[in-house]
Nucleic acid binder design. Structure first.
Length: 296
DNA sequence: GGAATAACCTGGATGC
DNA sequence: TGCATCCAGGTTATTC
């Protein structure tokens, strides 16, 4: 499941290949991959053909490639989306939805393939708007612009312009469980189910603890653990359980070997040795140690 | 306005 | 072997 570290690995892989490249053709093979695009496949193809890509930028789980100061191709990988770099004319990938043929002045011709099994991911052409704080829109570009579809989400915890004070204030004023808050992309972006569970385990906080019940010291500790978990996962190439997440070359990450709580139901907690439990939560699962992470 | 929940989707795993 | 059911979860629309 692509969360911040996985999307950043993809962005870093795309950057050298697409920066300065020209889109010579666009082929939409499944229009369901354009659910965020207004205008349909023909509009998407015609609008991008001939445009020059200026960068690969990321905020949270959103990735975008500006094609001018006012427009960008926005990508969200959803649950199973992949952005793959392939040789021109390479065989169609399994679940391939969209293919961009690009021409780079140094690297030559390449195919950028968007493949997505569960079709939760999408591409779209979107307008760029100024960031309210004047800082760069995301990692990968100094331009203080962000797609309208991304403008409503908060900066991610690894962003130098992340507003920790705003994060603490949002946590303090809500009665919702802290895991729900972590998954709210308008509070802090880039955190999904895996890294929420891992961060809460590291900070020894029960996922259902109301935000308002957490002392500032605990919120600060949690934020530090979120940043540490994300950094470590990024360094290890992200988390791969199966073929659902791979980098632009189709390779898996290694962070699954470093997980302490997520997906370890019944296995001993690495800290106290008692079994990790799994409970249903928001149509998904929470994994935690009931001994180390007690309810307040 | 804030909070909670359902729906969208595909394929692997599991049970019968 | 084949079929039915469950499960995974990010985002958003809907409901309370």
């Amino acid at each position: 499941m692509p969360e911040l570290p996985e999307v950043e690995v993809v962005r870093a892989g795309l950057e050298p290949a697409v920066h300065g490249a020209t889109i010579v053709s666009v082929d939409v093979r499944d229009e369901r991959a354009l659910t965020r695009h207004t205008g349909g496949a023909a509009h998407f193809e015609a609008h991008l053909t001939g445009r020059r890509i200026a960068a690969a930028v990321r905020r949270g789980k959103f990735l975008w490639m500006p094609v001018s100061d006012d427009e960008a191709v926005v990508t969200h990988l959803g649950m199973s989306g992949q952005m793959l770099l392939r040789a021109p004319g390479s065989p169609e990938e399994r679940h391939e939805r969209i293919r961009l043929e690009i021409e780079h002045p140094e690297h030559g011709d390449l195919s950028v393939v968007f493949a997505d099994q569960r079709t939760f991911g999408s591409l779209a052409v979107d307008d760029l708007v100024d960031t309210p704080d004047g800082a760069a829109g995301g990692r990968g570009s100094a331009l203080a612009r962000v797609p309208t579809q991304v403008a409503h989400i908060a900066r991610d915890p690894l962003d130098p312009a992340f507003d920790a004070g705003r994060f603490r204030a949002r946590v303090a004023r809500t009665s919702s469980g802290i895991k729900r808050v972590l998954l709210d992309q308008t509070v802090a972006s880039g955190i999904g189910n895996i890294y929420a569970d891992e961060s809460l385990w590291a900070a020894r906080i029960h996922p259902e603890t109301p935000g308002s019940a957490l002392p500032t010291r605990a919120v600060n500790r949690l934020l530090a653990e979120v940043q540490a978990v994300l950094e470590k996962a990024l360094a290890e190439g992200g988390t791969s359980f199966d073929a659902q997440y791979v980098n632009v070359n189709g390779q898996a990450g290694y962070f699954a070997h470093s997980l302490n709580a997520y997906g370890r139901t019944g296995q001993p907690c690495p800290r106290c040795g008692r079994p990790i439990v799994r409970v249903s939560f928001m149509n998904r699962s929470s994994h935690f140690c009931p001994h180390c992470q007690r309810r307040r």
